[in-house]
Design a protein around this nucleic acid. Structure first.
Length: 800
RNA sequence: GCCGGAGUGAUGAAAUUGGUAAACAUGCGCGACUCAAAAUCGCGUGCCGCAAGGCUUGUGGGUUCAAGUCCCACCUCCGGCACCA
């Protein structure tokens, strides 16, 4: 037996696999295709730590099994290299982002190859490649054509550190998700995508996806659909009126005041009629200048100012009610104004208590109500209407539609989801392919002129002027208008980090296509993605955006499925040994290079899959690598046990393990698949011998996890072709049958003894054996047997 | 507050339809080999107890011959949403 030298073996097979192209995906294969995808990384400067490849190893194991099962497997990899992380790295290290990306990509690729991942590198994509982002720009133009991309001057979230506008999805608790800086509202010209047009479809189609429930639930929360009505209140002595959105039109009779957001246009429109204008103006300005965090701080007491001289008319009962401005009403949701029903909404209740506004209960749990109770808090539930004119006594749910009709309101659905702010005032992103012309307005760059290339610049640092650094490159900015040939200027905002990742999974299928985003025959062959694996942090970011983008491509008939990703798995984080997140900052990162050098890639891969359930966050433990390395060594030594004749005594466990490993891989239970193979290895170690055929069965189910050592052994015992293109073994249920079983004997539910019997014995025989067992005899001695329970080949319970 | 998920040895964890709780692995202890160490191999390792035996899956109750698994109540932790009208 040769010595197991992992370094030598790994080097040899890496080269051989590439030379022979065994992982190449065929465009024209007659086999069924299987598409398994990793969320592609942005190549950071620090390289991979051991946490990064966990998901990649999982898809690798899965894809290798599928290939052996005869599928034409597509398992690609690429780089999401535009965006702030890459740009900030570049600024910090004083290199051009393009150079930094090139360098980092090379490093990442090298590390991934060491691990032995079976990517088809001929399909590699990079979002910063002009041939790639040409089609990102193309899709944007299609959206623009359909009216889904529009220009807006609404105040948006602005990060003063990153010096760019942000989308709702880029925030975390009111702060910039990247740098943690609290965001402020800033009026800014920007490009916005109408993702809200797709809200309902994104909600509905979630049903058909085989995704973890918590991800679907996150998306439902994020989209935040709520059904209600829009109701108009007239302003007394004025032509103006105030529209509000409410989910509780049944409580309309209890609306005792109204509130508008500080940003509401009504304020300036009523300026001359408001007696305390200066006070109102000060309040509104103060709130607008607050950060999102200050404004929504938890437990903050509500504040507001009444618009003196202004009254609104409640359309239900024609009562005059006051109008207030208060920052607890959000400008961007509904109409930016509410009818306040303090008896049935806790926020309104608190506000009304503070400012001594009447609280009228209009929904009661008991009807008829003899008196209106003094409320301690708002009652948000259902009941029967009271103090509601002709609707008295009606069930609140049933009253909703009737009251909407009564006041000429209209049913309306609102979403928490905001339209997608799609422009960034930064350099390192896809240029938005539009031209501004004095005469023609906004003119799309003609398709034949795509891509609009990102120009090289001297200084790519952000400007903080609300414009991108591209603005200062005159020779790039100034162009002639494609429509009138007059003077025009390019749009200088760039696309957000997420733009390129919206559709990269399509490009892998047809990476070299110069004439179309994707060839539709190839699209139909591979899409949708069968299994998608990535981090949970993308639940309401990438996974929302990509579904939206895909649905748009479906609408314009570029793709043929409504959804891009059928099955989704999230890998749990690998934490550092100290329990914290692995980070350069804490100096607690572990490099896969070191682990592979010391223990070998096979032991490394096996350990990452063995650590625990795939979706769990687990601390790294280098000691644990010893265990999987011992396992690999054990496998290596088994080659010495090979003899001519079959050892039928190991057939049962061998075939049971084949079945288990296959099922476990399919359900992403890699840890138990490995433990089953460890049990098999331990058994074979103790067995007297095994045949070459039997050893090959084992090698083939282990091959997806440990591709190097299995390949080496496969050849060592005389095979010529790669094990990785060999057939996945099928298990033989006949051979899985065992003839000796252990039947556990319980008395009153407590285990007292056990007997070894041949499988499939009759209950009467077992009863006789059990009751004559020495230990059992002692426990039932002299007692009456009330019940005798026998579960076949498993357990006996004697109740006395 | 609403919604989703989870609580099992020293540690990561396992437990098809309710049927031997702790498989597998690490760690630890003892032993073999060795001048010694590493590596390797063997034995042991939930808790209490000398033993017989008893106890044990967050807590309390229930159903059942039998509960980590089913039902009810509660506690704790993780995640999502959140002045969203």
């Amino acid at each position: 037996m040769k010595k197991y030298d992992h370094k030598k073996i790994e080097k040899k097979w890496q080269k051989e696999w590439i030379d022979k192209g065994i992982y190449k995906t065929e465009d024209t294969s007659k086999k069924n295709s299987f598409y398994i995808l990793d969320m592609f990384p942005y190549p950071s400067g620090s390289g991979l730590h051991v946490g990064h490849p966990k998901g990649y190893i999982a898809t690798d194991v899965y894809s290798r099994m599928q290939r052996m099962k005869g599928f034409n497997v597509l398992h690609p990899m690429g780089w999401d290299a535009f965006g702030l992380p890459a740009e900030q790295f570049a600024i910090k290290n004083k290199v051009h982002p393009r150079i930094a990306v090139e360098k980092n990509v090379a490093r990442y690729k090298e590390q991934l190859q060491m691990i032995g991942l079976d990517y088809d590198w001929s399909r590699e994509v990079n979002t910063t490649d002009p041939e790639y982002y040409k089609w990102t720009q193309w899709t944007f133009l299609k959206m623009y054509e359909k009216g889904l991309a529009f220009e807006s001057d609404e105040p948006i979230n602005w990060c003063d550190d990153c010096k760019t506008g942000l989308a709702q999805e880029d925030l975390e608790d009111g702060a910039c998700e990247r740098c943690g800086n609290p965001v402020i509202k800033k009026p800014l010209r920007q490009w916005v995508l109408k993702i809200t047009d797709y809200a309902d479809r994104m909600l509905e189609d979630l049903e058909d996806l085989n995704w973890p429930e918590y991800i679907k639930e996150s998306q439902r929360n994020w989209i935040g659909r709520s059904e209600g009505a829009e109701i108009t209140f007239k302003i007394k002595d004025s032509d103006l009126s105030l529209d509000v959105f409410t989910t509780r039109p049944d409580t309309l009779f209890g609306a005792t005041y109204m509130v508008v957001a500080p940003e509401h246009s009504m304020l300036t429109e009523l300026k001359s009629s408001i007696e305390n204008w200066s006070e109102i103006e000060t309040y509104a300005k103060d709130s607008v200048n607050k950060t999102e965090i200050e404004r929504t701080a938890e437990g903050k007491e509500k504040s507001g100012v009444q618009l003196i001289g202004i009254k609104a008319i409640n359309p239900a009962n024609n009562e005059e009610i006051p109008v207030w401005v208060a920052d607890y009403v959000l400008p961007q949701y509904g109409t930016g104004a509410i009818m306040a029903v303090p008896a049935h909404d806790q926020r309104d209740f608190e506000f009304a208590q503070k400012y001594k506004i009447p609280i009228i209960m209009v929904v009661c749990t008991h009807y008829p109500a003899h008196s209106c109770p003094v409320l301690e808090e708002a009652y948000p539930g259902k009941g029967h209407l009271v103090f509601s004119g002709k609707f008295d006594g009606m069930e609140s749910d049933k009253a909703k539609d009737k009251i909407i009709k009564f006041v000429n309101g209209k049913k309306k659905v609102n979403y928490k989801l905001r339209d997608w702010v799609f422009s960034r005032q930064r350099y390192w992103g896809e240029p938005i392919p539009l031209i501004h012309c004095e005469k023609c307005g906004v003119v799309p760059v003609p398709e034949k002129d795509l891509p609009v290339r990102l120009p090289d610049v001297e200084n790519y640092e952000p400007t903080n002027t609300g414009e991108s650094p591209l603005t200062s490159i005159d020779e790039w900015v100034n162009v002639s208008c494609p429509s009138c040939d007059g003077p025009g200027t390019r749009e200088t905002n760039t696309m957000p980090q997420w733009a390129g990742s919206n559709w990269y999974y399509l490009r892998y299928i047809d990476p070299q296509n110069k004439d179309a985003l994707i060839d539709s025959k190839k699209e139909k062959k591979f899409m949708p993605v069968d299994v998608y694996v990535g981090g949970v942090e993308h639940a309401t970011r990438h996974l929302i955006y990509a579904r939206f983008w895909h649905k748009f491509l479906y609408d314009i008939k570029v793709v043929s499925d409504k959804e891009p990703f059928m099955e989704l798995h999230n890998q749990g984080l690998i934490l550092a040994e100290d329990g914290r997140k692995m980070s350069k900052r804490w100096d607690n990162t572990v490099s896969p290079d070191d682990m592979i050098e010391r223990f070998g890639a096979d032991a490394f891969r096996t350990y990452e899959m063995f650590m625990g359930p795939f979706e769990n966050a687990i601390s790294w433990n280098t000691d644990g690598m010893v265990g999987t390395r011992r396992f690999i060594d054990k496998i290596w030594k088994l080659q010495d046990k090979i003899v001519e004749e079959e050892n039928t005594s190991i057939d049962a466990i061998l075939h049971t393990t084949i079945q288990k490993v296959e099922g476990d891989i399919q359900s992403f239970k890699f840890n138990t698949a490995i433990s089953a193979m460890m049990i098999l290895a331990n058994t074979l170690e103790d067995a007297v011998s095994l045949s070459k055929k039997q050893f090959e069965l084992f090698l083939r189910i282990l091959a997806p996890f440990a591709p190097y050592v299995t390949e080496e052994l496969w050849h060592e015992i005389g095979n010529k072709e790669s094990i990785h293109v060999n057939e996945w073994p099928s298990y033989d249920t006949k051979k899985m049958k065992v003839d000796q079983v252990t039947v556990v004997l319980q008395v009153n539910g407590k285990v007292r003894s056990s007997i070894e019997v041949t499988a499939g014995r009759k209950e009467s025989e077992i009863r006789e054996l059990a009751l004559s067992d020495e230990v059992i005899e002692k426990w039932i001695d002299g007692k009456e047997i009330k019940k005798f329970i026998y579960v076949k080949d498993k357990i006996v319970n004697v109740v006395v």
